[in-house]
Design a protein around this nucleic acid. Structure first.
Length: 642
RNA sequence: GCCGAUGUGGCUCAGCGGUAGAGCAAUUCACUCGUAAUGAAUAGGUCGUGAGUUCGAUUCUCACCAUCGGCUCCA
């Protein structure tokens, strides 16, 4: 059972504001929630910026001011949508030519004007016909499309500020003058309604705050985030690298990165074994025949690396000359199903919990890759729980328990949210199975989640093609969410593969399958760890736990001896034998975030001690070698998170 | 794949239509050192790749590759 020790907790407090080798400890997103003065009122109801509603309203009005400014500068621009988002807002525009840096400056200047004019913002309601006519007269084709899709009977509202009117549900601030501090941050392409079949629009992102200080605080925090971005420090601290000629999304894990992954893998494999998982080791590639059974061939082929004469694959998915096509595995499921199929199964055999530390290959689109967060080859803690309907609930809960335990141990249990990912009823061809089956399994899953008292949100269209998921999402330094862990209920694949078990009454039945990860993707986890701890990984995961620093070259033999002894005891240590002064060796170890530095000089050789320096607390004085080894192993054993 | 930005020695960055500089790192030498950088010297780049414009391209144009931020997707 994992427990944070008293000392660990104390240290956490002590270090919470402490400088970690040049970077300040994280406080992701929390600053957003602090109380701020009331910045506007509407009727009797006070709304303030410390509430989500208040921020939304503030940013939404900001986006209207942005659109207003763009319309003033380029009247021919067509408006799409411009919502408030977390930390800011954006507006999508359709315009000939692109927005460059100078354009953004001009837009900001015009926004300043509009704010200075302090235009009152008023709500106007129009009938559908009037609304449509108004937008037609302005040539706002995107707005017309939006109006046509509004449900019958719904009031169609517009908001007007000066000579600018926009279709909008609101609500808004009372006048443009209330926006005090704002900044346009970037331009990006975005498809109309998010579909690549549609027109590519230009999206301008920005943010706004009720005072300049808060804006500056936000911008500073973004600068800070840049400093702890895993893609930067992971390369600087030599955890991984990429090489152009290897290819996009194919990082090379350097010794430090590889060591952390090994530590994590061993931890997971041991923990899962303790919890009754059975390990498999399955091929990295298979014939298309396998993926045809699983449905990947029809629902996921674009995401797979294919080998063979792929040019001959026709619309039905067959090669025109009947030749074989292989594919690198994008998931392990179909292989583990065959492990199940290897013998006939009875209800007495269930549940069967298969796990594999599984390297997968997915042909992500080229614009998608990002450091270690999104890559084309990665390794996950994959597993499939094959169970009877009765076992579905306890197995699901067990898998979730494992996941939350793991998150706590590695220190990634903050800024986490749960997403219940469901299918999209309007997009049935993306999924396997009937509507009735989907509704049934989603109802079951919702019941389990409610039963667990989980605070989750529902998301349509986020399910896997074979079933709904519980995604555990985590925010990275930029505040962007990524899936850390996923638990999926699959009610289709057992049928597709003919996986049966003989029930108590002698009849054959199809089991349920839970696809799950316990730590998710190892590479991604490493990235999140590097960001969360600004490269200073907790001792139990640190690739180098201590470095022995001889004062001068006559102390090198003693340092080596200490190093050998500690390695023998299972510690990850090294020595710095360079001909440099101790100050320089310490500086370097400190910059490389080495948890403990053990200084050896005349005094220590005489006293048979080492002088201990912690990366957080500095000089701790001298200790015997045994004492420091006990201290380190205690920290490792409790998996203390600093 | 699409939109935008970027690409100069191992790293961080200057610079410029006339074939390149700094700091750190590296190497060598001296110093034998006590808790975040000892000093000196040396070496290292066909300026992402390819094509075009030009008397001449690292600098201008185009294509490709890679990186970064978005969109779609997703662990």
């Amino acid at each position: 059972m994992y427990l944070r020790t008293r000392t660990a907790l104390k240290s956490m407090k002590r270090h919470s504001l402490c400088n970690l080798g040049g970077t300040v400890r994280p406080a992701p997103q929390r600053w957003l929630n602090r109380m701020v003065f009331l910045c506007f009122r509407e009727g009797k109801k006070m709304v303030d910026f410390s509430t989500e509603e208040g921020r939304k309203r503030y940013r939404h009005t900001s986006s209207h001011i942005l659109a207003h400014a763009v319309k003033r500068l380029w009247p021919e621009t067509k408006l799409a949508i411009g919502p408030a988002i977390e930390d800011g807002f954006y507006y999508d525009f359709d315009r000939e030519g692109t927005f460059n840096k100078e354009d953004l400056d001009r837009i900001e200047e015009t926004m300043r004007q509009i704010i200075k004019e302090n235009l009152p913002i008023e709500r106007i309601e129009l009938s559908r016909d009037e609304a449509r006519k108004k937008m037609e007269s302005l040539g706002e084709i995107y707005k017309i499309e939006l109006i046509d899709e509004l449900p019958e009977g719904e009031k169609i509202s517009f908001y007007r500020q000066g000579d600018f009117t926009d279709l909008c549900a609101g609500p808004h601030l009372e006048s443009t003058g209330e926006v005090k501090a704002y900044k346009l941050t970037m331009v990006a392409g975005a498809y109309w309604r998010g579909s690549e079949k549609n027109m590519m629009l230009q999206r301008i992102y920005g943010t706004s705050f009720p005072d300049k200080g808060m804006l500056k605080e936000y911008l500073d925090r973004m600068e800070e985030a840049k400093k702890r971005d895993h893609n930067k420090i992971g390369r600087e601290l030599k955890y991984f690298m990429t090489a152009d000629c290897v290819g996009q999304g194919l990082p090379i894990m350097l010794p430090k990165g590889a060591k952390v992954l090994q530590i994590l893998m061993r931890f997971i494999e041991d923990e899962e074994t303790n919890r009754g998982y059975l390990y498999t080791r399955t091929p990295f590639l298979a014939k298309s025949d396998l993926y045809k059974i699983s449905g990947h061939w029809y629902h996921y082929r674009d995401g797979m690396f294919l080998m063979g004469n792929t040019a001959l694959i026709d619309e039905s998915g067959e090669t025109t000359d009947g030749s074989e096509v292989f594919a690198l595995r994008p998931m392990t499921c179909p292989f583990q199903y065959h492990a199940y199929l290897n013998e006939s199964r009875s209800y007495r055999d269930l549940p069967i919990r298969y796990a594999e530390t599984s390297t997968l290959f997915r042909n992500e689109s080229s614009g998608e890759m990002h450091g270690l967060i999104r890559v084309r080859q990665f390794t996950i803690s994959e597993g499939h729980l094959i169970c009877t309907p009765d076992q579905l609930e306890p197995e699901f809960k067990g898998a979730l328990d494992l996941a939350t335990y793991v998150m706590r141990c590695i220190g990634l249990d903050e800024d986490v949210s749960y997403r219940f990912s469901k299918w999209d009823i309007n997009n049935k061809e993306k999924y396997v199975g009937t509507a009735a089956e989907w509704e049934a399994v989603q109802t079951t899953m919702r019941k389990i989640l409610d039963d667990l008292g989980l605070d989750y949100r529902e998301a349509d269209g986020e399910a896997a093609f074979y079933g709904p998921k519980l995604d555990i999402q985590i925010k990275n330094v930029w505040g962007k969410e990524d899936t850390l862990i996923t638990l999926q209920i699959d009610f289709q694949q057992a049928k597709l593969f003919g996986m049966e078990y003989t029930d108590r009454d002698g009849t054959k039945k199809f089991p349920y399958i839970i696809h799950r990860t316990s730590i998710g993707c190892y590479e991604r986890t490493l990235a999140l760890l590097l960001e969360k701890f600004a490269g200073a990984l907790p001792l139990w995961m640190a690739p180098e736990q201590a470095r022995i620093l001889p004062i001068s070259d006559k102390h090198i033999p003693a340092a080596k001896e200490i190093c050998d002894e500690m390695r023998k005891q299972g510690f990850r240590v090294g020595t710095d034998e360079r001909d440099e002064k101790i100050g320089k060796k310490i500086r370097q170890a400190q910059l490389e975030k080495t948890p403990y530095m053990l200084v050896v000089g005349d005094k220590e050789m005489e006293e048979k001690t080492v002088s201990v320096r912690s990366r957080y607390e500095g000089d701790l004085g001298s200790m015997t070698l045994d004492a420091i080894m006990v201290k380190i192993s205690e920290e490792v054993k409790t998996k203390a998170i600093f």
